[in-house]
Simulated assay, not measured.
Amino acid sequence: MNFKTKYISLVLLSSFLLVCCKKEIIKSVPTTDSTSIKTEALKTDSTVMNPTDSLYNLVDKSVIGTHFLTKSSLAPRLKKLMGTEDYDQMVKYWNTETPFEKQENILHAWGCKQHDCNTYSYDLYIDVKNNKINVYKFTESKLTVLKEDNFDIEIKDNFLKDLNIKKENAVTKDKK
């Protein structure tokens, strides 16, 4: 085989490899339109953009197990609502808990300091429809209610019954 034949063979082989590689690259480009790409990108922040998308998925799940207080997109809002010191205290003492419950458009979870719920306990209410948070903080038999944007979440039925029992217990202990 002479030099010219080798050269032509090398060029053909290189061209063939180049064409094959380009076809593979073209095959790997997603076949979605720009709208679906944007939708996928927003899914991680859906609680900020549209809380109903992911907040209802919290029902029957643990606050601790979902890292809701520290890693959810609502965590910065909780910290702003409560202030850094109270927020850090809530995260520290949220040891014993109930899973999230849903009643109409309201989500509720309760947590307290392990072996000392009378000293530190928290009721977290999220109004999914209005995208607002209320925290009822019981500290040493004193109740502090924190309302995001001064919005009062309407607590009804079983949620209200449970909250009223906690309020009565706090008053009773305070009178002792």
Rank of each mutant, 00 (worst) to 15 (best):
F3R: 14
F3Q: 12
K4C: 06
K4W: 10
T5G: 03
K6D: 01
Y7F: 14
L12M: 09
L12H: 00
S14L: 15
F16N: 07
F16R: 05
L17T: 09
L17W: 09
L17Q: 05
C21N: 12
C21P: 03
E24D: 09
E24S: 09
I25A: 08
I25C: 04
S28T: 09
T32D: 07
S34P: 02
S36N: 13
K38W: 10
K38M: 12
T39L: 14
T39C: 10
E40F: 14
E40Y: 14
E40I: 13
E40L: 15
E40S: 15
L42W: 09
K43I: 06
K43H: 05
T44K: 14
T47S: 14
V48K: 10
N50D: 14
N50R: 13
T52K: 14
T52G: 11
S54R: 09
S54E: 10
Y56M: 07
N57G: 11
V59L: 01
V59I: 12
D60N: 15
K61M: 06
K61F: 01
K61S: 08
S62E: 03
S62I: 02
V63E: 00
I64E: 08
G65V: 02
G65S: 04
T66M: 00
H67Y: 11
H67C: 05
L69A: 00
T70W: 00
T70V: 08
S72A: 02
S72M: 03
L74E: 06
L74G: 06
P76H: 04
P76C: 02
L78Y: 04
L78E: 00
K79R: 15
K80M: 11
D88Q: 13
Q89H: 13
M90G: 03
M90F: 04
Y93S: 08
W94D: 02
N95Y: 05
T96N: 08
E97S: 07
T98D: 06
P99T: 15
E104Y: 12
I106L: 06
W110N: 10
W110C: 08
G111M: 03
C112K: 01
Q114D: 10
D116N: 13
C117G: 04
N118V: 04
T119M: 09
T119K: 15
Y120R: 12
Y122V: 02
L124R: 01
Y125F: 15
Y125A: 00
Y125K: 00
D127C: 01
D127R: 06
V128S: 01
V128C: 02
N130D: 08
N131G: 04
K132A: 02
N134G: 05
N134T: 02
V135F: 01
Y136F: 15
T139C: 07
E140K: 12
S141I: 01
K142T: 13
K142P: 05
L143K: 06
T144G: 09
T144I: 11
L146K: 14
K147Y: 04
K147V: 05
E148L: 07
E148S: 04
D149E: 15
D149Q: 13
N150P: 06
D152L: 05
I153V: 07
I153F: 05
I153E: 04
E154M: 10
E154D: 11
I155K: 00
N158D: 13
F159V: 01
K161H: 12
D162L: 12
I165Y: 10
K167Q: 12
N169H: 09
N169D: 11
A170S: 08
V171K: 15
K173P: 04
K173S: 11
